[in-house]
Design a binder for these strands. Structure first.
Lengths: 217, 217
DNA sequence: TAGATTGTTAATCGATTAACAATC
DNA sequence: TAGATTGTTAATCGATTAACAATC
């Protein structure tokens, strides 16, 4: 029974709904209408209802949505009720920062191992977990049921390492290397291209300054 | 002379064009047609031409596009020909990682200062630049012509710090805190919500596993 | 000139918004 | 029952793709 494909636009909004609902929940808000949520989140009430209805009806006519319930359901849609074992590949600054910065665990992402091919780092501990050489990754992934790899290595070796991770059984790659990885379609890739993001900011800055100049002429 | 507004969709694709053109340039490729680029980048040739023509004609009929020229023009559109002075606010793991990891300088983003409100960090050097107390930020921004702030602090203080940065003359914020900042519309904000990104990956993983289950039944 | 490929207009597709009947 | 608000269908808007005339 093939369900209808959910658009990227909708998926991209889910984490934001999840965040706002979590905050409302923490504030003790019990119910909310699409209208109210619209005001808080700065999107149309219509879009909110359409988005939720992609996954079935979570609300109740005349009442609205139960915050706690909706929060849980969106969490479930996002797969946050499941547990994933995750390794970080590349123990440089960014890899270390991610290991320490994000409290993955709260959402079911268990930081299980960290790998590098720089012998100087072997044995050094990051958040209590020691850096292992890349050679051990195959056994480790198998033995520890790892399904997600965080790729924080330079772009030139990224493609090769990604291939290796895939061959070893990794199901999803959170890719911080500045390349478009070529992986089999059953492997999920989410890119975080930081320099692209900074360039967008640069564009916006540039455009605003340009507009200002033109307005003042 | 108000130019037509460029859609977010187009802007979002510019950095990727820039990256591919840079690689082609490095490989010594002189000219390329929208058709060829389409094959490499996995987008339609039509979209490529439409995108470029938002900014005027960069190509030549019967010939295609000059790689070097197009690369430069897109760089210019993105504002990468300008120099920006940038500070990092929040000298934790992520702030340090960003300072070290990205070679901002190559694109005209000059890492000028780093601030924190933790006295234990004052004076410690990150990439040769010492951590300063937040109290000094106003004078520093003014004296050093800083226009971009990278916000790598916890979400609870982000709003307050952002306000302060704005009041002090910051024009753009690269926001890694997991909140939607409220700033005047003349201040540009680009969000990097890492946990949102990880949740999207989680969703894709979940969906794929679900599909697999259903197919095998 | 003939061939290639852009720039641009028109057609299609998809996403967002509006409207309203269903129902709590 | 009356009022509120969803779920859902229809209308609109915008983005992508196709087509082709302009032109190098």
């Amino acid at each position: 029974m093939a369900e209808k494909e959910i658009s990227q636009a909708v998926i991209g909004r889910l984490p934001r709904y999840f965040r706002f609902l979590g905050e409302l929940k923490d504030e003790g808000v019990e119910r909310i209408s699409s209208q109210e949520l619209s005001g808080i989140m700065n999107v149309t009430a219509s879009q909110i209802r359409q988005d939720f209805n992609n996954f079935g009806g979570f609300g109740q006519q005349g009442y609205g949505y139960n915050v706690e319930y909706l929060y849980q359901e969106i969490g479930r849609i996002l797969g946050l009720d499941k547990t994933h074992h995750l390794i970080i590949v590349g123990a440089g600054n960014l890899g270390q920062a991610l290991a320490n910065y994000m409290n993955f665990e709260r959402r079911g992402f268990i930081f299980t191992g960290v790998f590098d091919n720089n012998p100087a780092l072997y044995g050094r501990k990051i958040r209590g977990i020691e850096v292992r050489p890349m050679e051990e990754v195959a056994d480790f992934v198998e033995q520890n049921n790892v399904d997600i790899a965080v790729l924080t290595i330079p772009k030139n070796s990224a493609e090769e390492v990604a291939e290796r991770l895939v061959s070893v059984g990794i199901k999803a790659i959170w890719n911080f290397a500045h390349v478009d990885l070529k992986v089999p379609k059953e492997v999920q890739v989410e890119n975080v291209h930081l320099s692209d993001s900074l360039m967008k900011l640069s564009y916006m800055l540039e455009r605003y300054e340009k507009e200002s100049r033109e307005t003042n002429e």
